[in-house]
Amino acid sequence: MKNLKKIESSLETIKNDIKEFYDPKIWGFLTLNGVCIDIETTQIQWIFAKYKAIDEIVMFYVDVKLSQTVPTITDIIPSAIISQREIVDMFGINIEDSQKGLYLDEDSLSTPLAGCGI
């Protein structure tokens, strides 16, 4: 897709990569996204858009196993907490400092997007 720059990262380096990249006066943080790769693996994406630029989007991504824990970025981008908690509820991914229960009620179907929705 034109103007979408994808940058692969790892669980060990993602926080540092975002810290080095992110300037809040240049980039707006859009959201955290999850894309199911297979029943065990979800790709977590951190998406940014540049202010005053035409469709300039940067996406960092890491493939995460269900047993792994994703570092939080709320100390860099406080507003990320809301999408981190959404990903926890929808995919069942562990994210540091992000509890379940923001988006889904206790009696809801849990992690509805995990395992490719199967």
Partner: peptide, 24 residues
């Protein structure tokens, strides 16, 4: 900037962001 405000909430405090001017 810090909390990534968008829409009229952002523009009311002078953050010049609007997808209408940032997308082709």
């Amino acid at each position: 900037y810090q909390y990534n405000a968008i829409g009229p909430l952002a523009r009311a405090c002078g953050l010049e962001t609007d997808v209408r001017s940032e997308s082709a």
